[in-house]
Amino acid sequence: MKISEIAAVLNAEVYTVNHDENADIKSACSADLMSDVMAFSKENALLLTGLVNPQVIRTAEMMDMKAIIFVRGKKPQQAMIELAEEKRIALLATDFPLFEASGRLYQQGIRGHGY
């Protein structure tokens, strides 16, 4: 799925412009603990999380992820948006909680790798 398609499915706001809109996202990882993302996630292009801080963006960068979706109505701060722009990682925010947001993407064919 394209980032814009994911945004449409989750009714999400997109905060970045300098990201890879052509990225074809096939897999995702949902977690609030970045330690677990580092230790368990494999080859996932998308991170869904309820945690909002700059380390979420750095973790996504180290894991070669293309996009982050903040769930439960959480919004990224300006400094985080700038950091994500610099790293070409898309930032999105949806009002859906983590389970619901993950389920909706699963229904669209997104899967998880690394369990």
Partner: peptide
């Protein structure tokens, strides 16, 4: 630290 998303005790094994 846990509130920041770290402290699961996975770093060194990782």
């Amino acid at each position: 630290i846990r509130e920041m998303g770290f402290g699961a005790g996975m770093g060194l094994p990782n």
